[in-house]
Design a protein around this nucleic acid. Structure first.
Lengths: 222, 222
DNA sequence: AGCGATAACCTAACCCTGTTCAGGGAGGTC
DNA sequence: GACCTCCCTGAACAGGGTTAGGTTATCGCT
């Protein structure tokens, strides 16, 4: 209960036994995630601070991670599985495919807002040149596949227009990402309308926009 | 045409005359914007590099900007006016309020992708504690006001459902921001569907979702 | 013309950062 | 006990943002 977690002199930590070198790796990831959450800003947490929190010297970090960016990314990436599971649970909590989609959207936003640092690192801070595609090829692709299936189920039930499910799912994703990321990155005093009303509206527009037979025939552009 | 723009020894620059101290400020902003675009990453451009590009020493920068973040933000903020004007022009290029909204959406995404660094700084990199609200209270609020009016016009023409125009405009904004920001920050090899088809779909869903009398009655969610 | 005031800028340094290189010390094996 | 190997340090490098204090050029004024 009273473990000294915030600081630890190097040497404090008990050296890992032989063959248990990976133990330090996990401790580093734990500390990194914790510090990122506390600082509410990945750039503000220093490698030295992470090392100190673990009770180890900075170079030890580089025995397990190529650079800081990879470490931070991996620390945040671990939330990805939980992210997917949370959304799936929300989606499975109801039978109606439409309501299921709505709950998925709400769960997505809620999870993002509950883990803004991880969400930011995963979805908002990719720079050209950097390539964390493995993350999106793994847990990300799986999670996206779940969304596609949810959309497809609604289509099969005749509740949504038959468009390309992948395009529809991508559009749904970008919509919920839009509000999530803006809620995270806009200044605290940004003049948002009522949040719940806005979220309801956004999900509503998605569902309506994907539904059958709207009155306005959306003709081609140009 | 052959001005040495990339480097300049301090002292190279001719000292501004009395009362023209603000000249350096503009030169700094120009250099900062140029370097950010070249580096495609705001964090990668150093104050020292900006100073050198202008032909001045680093401390001179702090005579005009409180810190690096403020400098970079202001350099990117200057695009905001142009952003608004571009969207307005696109929206005014057609009479039909619905098609006008669609063109606004497309113009928004296009502008964001043409100025990804500025877009990122303005809309994707706000951290809690940082407060650039003046930007959104100025050009941002004006631009958003234009969008609200465009939505209201479509409602007045009986083409959109009568919901709160501010909520509808906010939802529209978050939608186009969603795809814009993800196209900017996802890895280059991310498996996007066809971009044009996706953008058309997204605008389509927004329009349909805001239109009158969809078949599915979207009941309240708990 | 000369002088002081002051705006405009520079010199030098501080402290912190990510990262590297070479070395030391504990655990297990013979 | 000797040795080897894995786990980790000590010390340093190169570069970053930022600051305290000094220097220079310009301009109004006499």
């Amino acid at each position: 209960m009273s473990r000294a977690r915030t600081t630890a002199r190097p040497g404090t930590r008990q050296r890992a036994r032989r063959g248990e070198g990976e133990k330090l790796r996990e401790e580093i990831l734990d500390a990194a995630e914790r510090l990122v959450v506390e600082a509410r800003n990945p750039d503000a947490v220093a490698i030295r601070a992470i090392a100190e929190a673990v009770g180890v010297t900075p170079p030890s970090i580089y025995l397990h991670f190529p650079d800081k960016e990879a470490l931070i990314f991996e620390a945040c990436e671990r939330r990805f599985e939980e992210f997917d599971a949370t959304i799936e649970a929300a989606g499975d909590s109801v039978d109606d495919p439409i309501e299921s989609l709505r709950r998925r959207g709400r769960a997505y936003v809620q999870f993002g807002l509950e883990h803004p640092e991880a969400y930011r690192v995963l979805f908002m801070t990719g720079y050209p040149g950097r390539d964390p595609s493995h993350a999106f090829a793994g847990a990300g692709a799986r999670s996206f596949g779940h969304l596609v299936e949810a959309v497809r189920r609604a289509m099969d039930a005749g509740l949504l227009r038959r468009v390309d499910p992948v395009v529809a799912a991508t559009g749904f994703w970008t919509a919920v990402h839009g509000i999530t990321s803006l809620l995270i990155s806009m200044p605290d005093n940004f003049p948002w309308p009522d949040r719940d009303a806005l979220l309801d509206h956004i999900c509503d527009v998605q569902i309506r926009g994907l539904s059958e037979t709207s009155t306005t025939d959306t003709g081609g552009s140009t």
